[in-house]
Design a protein around this nucleic acid. Sequence first.
DNA 1: CATATATGTCAACATGGCTGACTTAAAATT
DNA 2: AATTTTAAGTCAGCCATGTTGACATATATG
Lengths: 174, 174
Amino acid sequence: MADLKLPPHGASKHGTNPLFLRDEELRQAMELLFFAYRDFTAEPDAILAQYDFGRAHHRALHFIGRHPEITVSELLRILRITKQSLNRVLGQLVAQGYVEQRQGTRDRRQRLLTLTGAGRTLEEQVSADQRARIAKAFREAGAESVEGFRKVLLGIIGGEEDRARFDRPGAPRR
Amino acid sequence: MADLKLPPHGASKHGTNPLFLRDEELRQAMELLFFAYRDFTAEPDAILAQYDFGRAHHRALHFIGRHPEITVSELLRILRITKQSLNRVLGQLVAQGYVEQRQGTRDRRQRLLTLTGAGRTLEEQVSADQRARIAKAFREAGAESVEGFRKVLLGIIGGEEDRARFDRPGAPRR
DNA sequence: CATATATGTCAACATGGCTGACTTAAAATT
DNA sequence: AATTTTAAGTCAGCCATGTTGACATATATG
């Protein structure tokens, strides 16, 4: 694969060889992901900077918000970072009153994480632009396109565990 | 927006209030983007590490590959990073023979960037998993879904300039 | 000729990843 | 009951990649 002899990647937008067309299609998709993600994160990053927080804080706020009483290990599994990295961020969020830790009852080793009121407010504020951006894109693209968007992104996600997070009750079974 | 009183973000998967349903839908989309991007970048990052390169190098390789003779300022505009950040990365790629710089002919201040053979080989290798991943997702989701995926991601991208990059000759005009 | 533009460079700093080593408390196993 | 495993936290240091600010050079443009 690495030593295929190919023309410059951008060279055959209108080429006749279907292999090149396919490559062009795939590389366009890569770029779509890059640009969308770049613009998707720009605004939240700017708002967070005012709180001396970064994208890492937002990710923690988001997933704690979505899963009240989430355990530290589950959060680590989702974010795929080390516990040292997470603890730095989590410590700040707890110290500044955005996240609460409670000892688990079934397993008292666990520290269950939940947003405080301030935490929910902050998350709402930080994600407002992202939600508006997605809403606009969904509205413009239409319901069918939204379904396609979901299907393709699900296909890109690697683990069955993570895909299962998006099972929808009323969705067509395929 | 920040002081709306909402239940925990994950609380109303089957709720009856359409506002909550909408919020849930939007937040799911945010997560889809997060997980897809996380898994999309994991493999390339691992391969690049063997060359003592990072994701920033990959982005440069990708866009130089897609746009041979791209100028530094155009690359900066795409990546939205400072020229100091780019130069660090670019310097390494040039020093190690993956990227060539040529003086522009029309404007001799410009340094036109192009991948060398080694650069193309490296980019091919690093992006192989990404292309395979997208190809699999496209294949499983079907052509209609791919169209929807494109439309939604285009809607997420902010600037008209960047959207124009994806104009397709044969695409339906809507 | 004066000014604006494209590029490069030096220095210092911040964020958020990482590894490795070690601790504590509680659960699970033997 | 003793041992081992697990969940979480901590300290120390490293690295990649972003930032700002100041300044330099060559070339294009008015």
